[in-house]
Design a protein around this nucleic acid. Structure first.
Lengths: 340, 340
DNA sequence: TGCTAACTGAGGCACGTGCATCATTTCAAG
DNA sequence: CTTGAAATGATGCACGTGCCTCAGTTAGCA
């Protein structure tokens, strides 16, 4: 039977449609024996609920909120653009997406915002904010109120379980791998720049980077991570310092998603000196650098995929389904001049 | 208004729901002035047809057929696996997917199969077969009968317009780029192996490869393409010959999607001799080779993405929509040991 | 045995759209 | 003004599911 309906189910199980409905929607007051009979029929006929009809009946709408940081780097711009686009892609599934930007460095702020959301108006939230006890609590309470919550790109625990984002360990290792293989001299030191080493992302990337370089390119040497704290002067000072003290510089790995500041400074300081440079995330800036040959590779995650994956996962949670995991894995993309 | 309905449209345009229906579904017998009024209302309210309700009303189902080659390489296995998986992912959208394998080298065969499909039972076909006049004709007639048709992965013209598959020129260039950069000696010759140079895929990859190498690594030298015709003995002979005559071998590019035969032969012939090796498509075999360090990189297109993209495009065609192109672009993926 | 509580059945409306039929209005030609 | 065709309105059923009410049946217990 092509797509059996609840009617078919009822006939097969020898019960009424009302009882099938009770079983399907987990209402109580049904004998276990009857429940089993219906479940058997479901299995036998391969019944799959027609979610579209169900949504129609319930006038179900999905409203998803993306809670993002305020800081306006280009990667974030791309994310926001793709959220808008996802809104129109998923419109036919009755999905609406909204962006809300918060000061992600004040956990209280984040938690307060999450506290304002309730199931009546919001089906789910994708949260991009550093981990903290307050935020963890707020997420817990969100779920209690029936709002789906999803760690988005950054920084929540057990990312691999249910969050959306690439494997940062693998990303760091890939950066090291490329620097090691692109570097014809096989020796030299590598400069690593991050916005801050507080974040889980940076830590994991650095771990992957170190482990790969140590294991496969032992004659190269990694310098301590430089933290810019998003401050141009500070960045300039520490980078200049490092460049001066390490004449054997062979590679540069910019770990933060905003590569503009560090790369601009490095370009200024070491105009023609050539060493291998790797940065994260595809943005207008990194693309231009790659094309110009001032950057050797970009390690990227597809922002469109990130957003759509988040939407699908949130929707699956609301519908009470398991998302197909193979579709949701975010690849560590290696972008070169030739496959931009 | 959150999702206006045809009722709202009717009220806004000052006509009845019947007339709205006539306009929406392009039935005739409506004055131009009325059509305009309705269209204005659509624009003003931002009306979007609820496809789910429409499908429910029409009992619309989508049955998509994937016409694939018979030859059983591992890449094809992966594709087929993902078609099955897509079947369950898209089940909620009332989509069914079926695989039909044909002898792709006999155009008459392909065209005969396509001739058996009609709109009553089949909504669309994704076709993976070499281009030929017969097939082109058959596709034309399919469309006339109201069956959507889509070039899939391989070999039809104007791929960029509407087909599904990666940019082969870019893929070839990326292979050359990697070989050039990984090769520390900066000189040497490169062996290129294909199943056949008849196919558009191989030609485009080779063009991209040559152009990149010539432009950016001029001190390296590309050898003429070796064609295996899928024959082990022949492959063994020509590869052995090439290896013997080119002691300066620095790189190998396997262009075909089935890399097992050529790579196995090369492994046999030049056990420890190390040169850069690049192959296409992620399969159990190429993954294992990459892990073992016998392969330096895989240039891949995500088979799951290919399949889902094909389904979405076919569905969009049936629904009379434009697919969001940004989601459908197939990336040229660079896979290394570290980002498997 | 009778009584009550637990369970089950029957039926109907709603969701937004497609599609059909029949009635009514409009408008231009005669 | 009449006539008739073209245009539009009114209405109702269907799709598959959720959700509600009310009536009927069964089972457990005293």
């Amino acid at each position: 039977m092509l797509r059996p309906t609840t009617k078919d189910l009822a006939k097969e199980a020898g019960v009424s449609r009302a009882t099938v409905d009770r079983v399907l929607n987990g209402r109580e007051g049904v004998k276990q024996k009857t429940v089993d009979r219906v479940n058997e029929a479901i299995k036998k006929l391969g019944f799959v609920r027609n979610i579209q009809a169900a949504n129609l009946a319930k006038s179900q709408k999905y409203r998803f909120v993306f809670a993002l940081p305020k800081s306006g780097d280009q990667f974030l711009d791309a994310i926001i653009h793709h959220i808008d686009e996802a809104g129109s892609i998923f419109a036919e599934d009755l999905v609406w997406c909204e962006v809300h930007q918060i000061d992600e460095n004040d956990p209280h702020n984040v938690s307060a915002f999450l506290g304002t959301l309730d199931a009546a108006t919001t089906s789910g939230v994708a949260i991009m904010a550093p981990e903290s006890p307050q935020v963890r609590d707020a997420i817990y309470r969100l779920k209690e109120r029936g709002v789906a919550a999803l760690p988005f790109i950054s920084d929540q625990t057990s990312m691999d379980d249910h969050g959306v984002g690439m494997n940062n360990n693998s990303a760091g290792a890939t950066a090291a791998n490329l620097i090691g293989r692109f570097n014809r001299s096989e020796t030299g030191s590598v400069m690593v720049i991050a916005e801050s080493m507080q974040s889980r992302d940076s830590l994991e990337r650095r771990l992957g980077f170190d482990s790969e370089l140590r294991q496969h390119f032992p004659s190269m040497r990694v310098l301590p991570s430089l933290e810019t704290y998003g401050n141009y002067e500070r960045a300039h000072d520490i980078i200049a310092n490092t460049v001066q003290n390490n004449p054997d510089l062979a590679g540069l790995y910019v770990m933060s998603s905003e590569a503009r500041t560090p790369l601009t400074i490095v370009n200024e300081l070491c105009g023609t000196a050539s060493f291998i440079k790797i940065a994260h995330e595809r943005t207008p800036f990194t693309e231009a650098e790659l094309r110009a040959g001032r950057l050797d590779s970009i390690i990227a995650q597809d922002p469109g995929h990130l957003v759509r994956s988040a939407v699908r996962k949130l929707k699956a949670t609301v519908d009470g389904r398991q998302p197909k995991s193979s579709q949701e894995r975010i690849r560590v993309e290696v972008i070169l001049r030739t496959n931009l």
